[in-house]
Design a binder for these strands. Structure first.
Lengths: 247, 247
DNA sequence: GGACGTTCCGTACGGCGTACGGTACACCGT
DNA sequence: ACGGTGTACCGTACGCCGTACGGAACGTCC
């Protein structure tokens, strides 16, 4: 359980891999790209917990140890997976309105997390400095360029928005895929949970949880998870707008 | 790697455990509480990746399989760990000013993540419905009570703030503990990384990343990770304040 | 003292990451 | 055409993991 990445290995080797210096192809057609792609496919469909070197190798019709010719270890493979998916989003010309630009950045990140939920579970301290991470950073800074913010304010503001997106996406995405993972619909889950909760839960002790929880429960479906994401995003952008205006 | 929790087991059993119905104590002094406490201590110090039933048992001077008398499995143990740490924060009377209340909630959550970074790595869809989770929800809703929001708006607003805190905390906490985990200071890491990056990085292709990254790099230490957390929080609260005012 | 229920746990199975060392192939100089 | 050499591939094995299973040890009651 729990996800570590990179770290241990030779940084120079990692960097060479990320930037695809010396990209070979073996006699079975194996390559870093194919390994990374297979690993991403596995993680997308079965979660990062189910990602194993043996399974990746099997998917490629190859012995497990063959992977180590191309990739130093699982940690580095995950680094490569991260930078790879960071390169997926299209990065079209940004609109003239900076707020629309920032909205696009936020939604694009949410879409990324939706497509690759395992991204939410890999640690982000010391990220792998690959080409796509840098391209993403550069592109996203473009949303905040030319509106009167200092460099540091730009960085901090972007970090704030991405922080919000990460946190909100975590809730939204994991909630959305809970039925699949557990083989149990949300309704079924509540039908099991509710009577159990009723036996131990004292509404008098937790009046707000009781009242608001009931309201939120009824409204669920009407007010969905996407709506909550948008609500918070708009509040955050309102706050940023006020900051930009007063700057 | 990667973290799953709960799910598989009998929901009734899980609920009984969370609410500590039928809490026994074995002849060796073993109990659910002691197991959970030992597991939390392990996860706090070595990360959730290093948490294993065998290590928990060893810490308690007991055979690994003895744990299964008290806890159905590792997933349920993690559920118990979550609810346990959710009960740790003091929940003092909230100030009269709702914005101060919400700030307190946000910072208190950040502190929780700082104390138990592994919390950031456990999935949050279908959370364990324990007493402390509910108490926390009730308490935090109190920050938004009586300011003219509907029940659903209260829930959504709280979710937004907690989403921001989770995302920002993920960045802050993991960054903060990277030196420990890797045995390498941030400066040392950059000293290794910088020359490698210079060889592959073209500033012309990524002018913003280059310029802003450099500024942010220089300012690091002055503008720290806490500052970024506070900045985004204030922006979000500004936006919420505007929403409350116009409501 | 005996029976019974519960707690404790040794052993084992299948899966993991990966170290190590061997094999077999592609390509080279002759 | 042929032997030599480097590299791609991978079988085996080690020490971890979660936990199923069944037996041993114990407290408790008759």
């Amino acid at each position: 359980m729990a996800v570590e990445h990179s770290g241990t290995g030779d940084p120079a080797r990692s960097m060479a891999l990320l930037w695809r210096a010396a990209d070979r192809e073996g006699r079975t057609g194996l390559s870093v790209d194919r390994i990374v792609a297979a690993a991403i496919a596995l993680a997308d469909s079965d979660g990062i917990a189910a990602l194993s070197m043996r399974k990746v190798a099997e998917k490629l019709g190859v012995g497990a140890m063959s992977l180590y010719t191309y990739v130093p270890g699982k940690g580095e493979l995950i680094d490569l997976m991260i930078d790879q998916v960071l390169g997926e989003p299209e990065r079209p010309e940004l609109p003239a309105n900076w707020r629309a630009r920032l909205e696009h950045v936020a939604r694009s990140n949410l879409a990324l997390y939706r497509a690759h939920p395992w991204m939410l579970q890999v640690g982000t301290g010391r990220p792998p400095m690959g080409p796509n991470l840098i391209a993403k950073y550069d592109y996203e800074l473009g949303a905040l360029e030319g509106i009167g913010l200092s460099d540091i304010e730009m960085d901090t503001t972007l970090t704030s928005v991405l922080g919000y997106v990460t946190g909100a996406a975590q809730a939204a995405v994991e909630f959305a895929q809970a039925p699949d993972r557990s083989g149990m619909s949300d309704e079924a889950w509540w039908e099991v949970q509710a009577p159990l909760l009723e036996k131990v839960f004292d509404p008098k002790r937790f009046p707000l949880a009781s009242r608001v929880g009931a309201s939120a429960g009824e409204a669920y479906g009407l007010i969905d998870v996407d709506h909550a994401f948008e609500f918070g995003l708009q509040r955050l952008l309102d706050g940023i707008e006020a900051f930009v205006a007063r700057n």
